[in-house]
Design a protein around this nucleic acid. Structure first.
Ligand code: MN
Ligand code: MN
Ligand code: MN
Ligand code: MN
Lengths: 221, 221
DNA sequence: AAATATTTTTAGATGAAACTAAAAATTATT
DNA sequence: AATAATTTTTAGTTTCATCTAAAAATATTT
């Protein structure tokens, strides 16, 4: 069965909202991410349920069916592989690729995406550190922690971001933060929950809680 | 002003039908290439005229305005650059790329297409020998001839094809014909207008008039 | 437990892009 | 020049994805 751009975008967003927990997703949550009204979401959820891609009961919220999750993972795979292409081969910065990948993720050609994967030498993660689902729909679990949850005195490495808006990524770049940055959490400041962090052995800088929440790290060793 | 996929496809097809001659294009001709009904074409032509991209008078046919031609050339440029990418970088055969490029041509990002052009080292022609319009909307005139019009005894080189359907391209491949093939027109056979042609100095084979019409060549020296 | 607030669904409408069937205009033929 | 054939347009529908406004269901507060 074929999928429209709109359907693919809804499935992808329901997938995103489901990551981690297992409870049902609310109509309003979907409406916010799709940038549509709740009434439009209700219509689409009925249609997706009709096609067997979601389980949906009026007023009870929605979750992906196994079939729907497979489609969503396919879109996410394409999105992230194209992002790698845009950064690695076309020379874009990590804050410039998301919007273009939003378009490219809907290109329909299995052979293209497999050839792209090979051309990029089978990357495991995208330019934002997000894992790339395998061809057969398995999303690797990377198990990173949020910088905001790291205790003072710990060393860690920046492995990813939990948000890929251009404005956030540009701020990280300004702060000299990028994938692979070696971080030393000198102090957690109780007043505003900001963290004093030394980046690549440089003198420590303040990172706000809002930013630290969206930085994913792996503890050193 | 933004363009929908449907509008872009119409403009591209009107452009294609206009190449060469200067007369107006008929509604039916457009309907055939867009794979829609004449009534649908009439609707769209009114809309395109409204936006200033075509000149259209009821019953008089249609032609592109300068603005419409610029848009069409932009789509053709993207289509052909993506085809080069698919063949040169992704390892597709020349008969496999057209359908994928039909999708990729609608990706909207000026910086992407300029970076792609650079990545491909500014190709002048696509995998079918078709010229790639410049960034500023100029289509190079290559001035090739049809193999069907070449006189017996002449040598020429295969430079392009006038049709990019997979079935035609696969036949050429089977006949060992590809871009750059050195052709010697041994004889034009009056009965069926087929041509006896030696390909790369091999013993001559028969090429039907139907095929010869769609092969573009440059006379040797 | 009632009242109130919030969320979600229904009902009805809109704009795009297609369709079919019928009418009108143009072109070709006698 | 009249008739017939063909092409093109109009009129009225359909499907998809959205919208607004109002109704219904659920959740929260008093
Ligand atoms: Mn992204
Ligand atoms: Mn990403
Ligand atoms: Mn197209
Ligand atoms: Mn081509």
């Amino acid at each position: 069965m074929s999928t429209s751009f709109a359907e693919e975008n809804y499935l992808k967003i329901i997938y995103r909202l489901s990551e981690g927990h297992t409870d049902d997703i609310s109509t309003n949550a979907v409406a916010e991410l799709t940038q549509t009204k709740a009434a439009s979401v209700t219509d689409m959820l009925r249609k997706l349920a009709e096609k067997g891609w979601v389980n949906y009961q009026k007023y009870q919220g929605v979750r992906l069916s196994p079939e729907g999750e497979k489609i969503a993972l396919g879109i996410v795979r394409k999105h992230r592989l194209w992002e790698v292409f845009l950064v690695e081969k076309m020379g874009f910065n990590w804050d410039e690729v998301h919007e273009i990948a939003e378009q490219l993720e809907h290109i329909e050609s299995d052979s293209l995406i497999e050839k792209l994967d090979e051309f990029l030498e089978f990357p495991k993660t995208d330019p934002h550190g997000d894992p790339i689902p395998s061809k057969n729909g398995v999303m690797p679990e990377l198990g990173y922690q949020h910088l905001a949850d790291i205790k003072a005195g710990k060393r860690c490495v920046l492995m990813g971001v939990a948000k890929d808006s251009a404005i956030f990524l540009q701020l990280l770049t300004k702060m000299k933060l990028s994938l692979g940055s070696a971080l030393y959490v000198q102090e957690v400041n109780a007043f505003d929950r900001s963290v004093s962090v030394s980046i690549d052995e440089a003198p420590a800088v303040f990172i706000s809680h809002e930013v630290a929440k969206n930085i994913l790290v792996k503890l050193a060793q």
